[in-house]
Design a protein around this nucleic acid. Structure first.
Lengths: 110, 110
DNA sequence: AAGGGTTGTCTATTATAATGAACATTAAAG
DNA sequence: CTTTAATGTTCATTATAATAGACAACCCTT
């Protein structure tokens, strides 16, 4: 069956932003689309659609492009990514391992 | 031909962080994996691999999950995403429309 | 400690993204 | 203003992600 997905405005804007950041980073570094695509091991066609902010491309590919052209994700200083990652893992360990969904209304409205 | 991709440590860390942020957000909101998957219109299997930080899933799906569980992307206040997006488009318009790769050495080292 | 919901994980099948090729258009640079 | 590299864009084909289903292990609650 044909998949039909919808994306919130927020998601579409975030995609557009990231695509633009990558394109800007590429141009500022004097790389052609072909240059960057080869460097990342993808086709120029895929890079094109990523720079356009398409929702379909693989997140790993997009993040790799960001890394190559120097777009910072989550941290101003990307040397701290490991630190943040560890912090999050620790935080996660403190949370319940599984979420219990209440059978009926628990204290819903009215 | 079989595709073989490599990802930098930075990329893998960013993926892990985002997966953890989504999982933490989900748990803190008391949603089961099934809840969140349905809400986003994806399978629990896919959500699972996203929370694990896999590079393959579609970026639009991952961003949508982030939006649902309240993970902020790029902006502390996501109401400003549109503003940032516009700013980037304007910045992009000021850059050269195409990058010219020099034929030979231009002024390389030594 | 038991019962059942939740999660971790694997596996076919199906839907779709990635690719390379192609071509028109554009714009950088001589 | 001419040249030609770079970009925008579309289109089959191929590789792969998404899915549903299944099952065990786990944890929560009673």
């Amino acid at each position: 069956m044909k998949r039909t997905r919808t994306y919130s405005r927020m998601t579409l804007q975030a995609l557009s932003i990231l695509g633009n950041l990558i394109k800007i980073g590429r141009i500022e570094r004097g790389m052609t689309a072909q240059d960057l695509a080869e460097r990342a091991g993808i086709s120029r066609t895929t890079l094109y659609s990523i720079e356009k902010g398409a929702p379909g491309p693989e997140i790993g590919t997009v993040f790799e492009l960001a890394a190559i052209v120097g777009v910072q994700l989550f941290e101003p200083d990307s040397r701290n990514l490991a630190v943040q990652d560890k912090r999050l893992s620790e935080k996660l360990a403190l949370l319940p391992q599984s979420v219990r969904r209440p059978k009926r209304e628990v204290d819903d409205d009215f």
